[in-house]
Computed example of a mutant assay.
Amino acid sequence: MIRHQWSDYSTGERIKALRGTEVTQETLAAMTGLSVATIQAAEQDKRLSLPTLLKITAALGVDTAVILGQQPPRRAQHQEDRAMLKNLSHAVHDTAAGIGSEDEPPSMGELERITREAWDLYWQGRYPEVGTISAPLLRAAAARLHAEPAGEQARAWSLLADAYRICAYVANLMGVRDLAYAGIGHAQHAAEQAGDDLRQALVASGRAWVYLRDARLQDALHLAEKAAVDIEPRFSTATPEQLTVYGSHINFAAVVASRMGNADRASDYLSQSHATGARMGKERGFHGTLFGPVTATAQAVGINLSLGQAGKALALTSAISDTSPLTPAARHRYALDKALALADARMWDASLDTLEAAVRAAPQWARHQALPQVIVSKVGRASTARLRRVAKLIGSPIV
């Protein structure tokens, strides 16, 4: 039987799942100060006192409600992820409060290099690694700002805005919504201090994405539309950087409109997105965002799926013969959208083949995504042997 709900498991099974493969019973015993026998008894549902429960929850970095099955864990609840998110939270809140390192900060050039590396990791879908380097990057950027002479801090404010935005993106992907709101709010202040219009627009788009993940669709659409209008360029004179930022904004507005079921609005934004991509001619990156003609078409697949137009989505996939211009994360997401379109078309085997290939190509990225579970759910009982294999691969245990 495939268990889909966190509450379907026993308390002991939930402890074992949260412990994962990277933390043994012996390691958890050492982390909690409990005996291995006590850990074994808890996982076998034989004995779990309140003090034991509290020690285990503290060691695993989760709420007691998660272990007791009252609320599901966030995706990617591996031990190293929880430690990374805690460090990220400390960095965001400490720097915002003016608490920083007393060490000599890196040079501006070195910080810019590390920021580019963080964005590269982000677009590869290596989110835990991004989070790991983002905490020290944020602290270093804040220290660099304080070291700069008054009146010469614009460049440092820009770097700080990027660091906060990266932190917010990682938190948002991992479902830590309060941290995402905090990070994007501090990013907005830093971008305003930098006086950089394009960075301010990117931060606004980031906030709209947090709204989208928080199911605030109307707020997300309003903000995405406003940000796009504020930076809409003249195609005849626009720079590649302006087109990149505008294209990503208008594309995101189409995503939100599709989630709201507004087909006409989504179609209008998609037309503008495709026109912008055609004007650019190729994929480009700027300030941590990427856009181009292939991105516009790949995103259109997911947008049409949201509108219930699986046939149109499948037709669009035939127009994409080469996904190499996309970032790794975008390629993986496109593969999931294609698998979902195939599932909607009741092409079960092709859907599972596509899903399995995507998950095997990027297992670390896939465990932060909800779509694989959605696809498996749609396939249902078709092709049972393959379904069981793929369900196990994406983390839906077979018991």
Rank of each mutant, 00 (worst) to 15 (best):
E192K: 08
Q242M: 05
R19I: 03
L111G: 00
P128H: 02
D8N: 07
T27S: 13
L54F: 15
L371R: 11
S89T: 15
N87E: 15
H249M: 07
N304I: 00
I114D: 04
A296N: 04
A313K: 00
N251V: 02
H90M: 14
G131E: 10
V170T: 06
T317R: 11
A141R: 07
A180D: 11
A366C: 02
L121A: 06
W157R: 10
D264T: 10
Q272F: 03
V36E: 02
P397A: 07
A163Q: 03
S205Q: 06
G261D: 00
T64H: 01
T21L: 11
P328R: 08
P240G: 03
F291P: 15
I184C: 11
R333H: 14
P128Q: 01
L88V: 04
T276S: 03
G12Q: 08
P233Q: 00
L18W: 04
A30L: 08
A141H: 04
S158L: 14
V399G: 15
A194E: 02
H249R: 12
W365L: 03
Q364D: 12
E148Q: 15
L336W: 10
G69W: 00
A41C: 02
R19N: 07
H222F: 06
L145F: 04
T237M: 05
A147N: 09
H78I: 07
W6E: 14
A150E: 09
H146P: 11
A147P: 05
A224R: 02
A180H: 11
S236D: 05
I15D: 00
A339H: 08
G185F: 05
E232F: 10
L336G: 02
I56G: 01
A180Y: 10
L340Q: 08
N87F: 01
R139H: 07
A362I: 02
Q242S: 00
H90W: 10
R389Y: 12
D230A: 09
A266S: 09
V130R: 11
A30W: 04
I56N: 01
V376W: 14
R82I: 00
V229D: 14
Q77F: 11
I394P: 01
M347R: 09
L221N: 05
I375M: 03
A140K: 15
D353F: 15
T237C: 06
A391P: 01
A275Q: 07
V390C: 05
A83K: 12
G395K: 00
I99T: 04
A208D: 00
L352I: 09
A147H: 10
A366S: 03
M108D: 11
A278Y: 02
R389K: 13
G175Q: 08
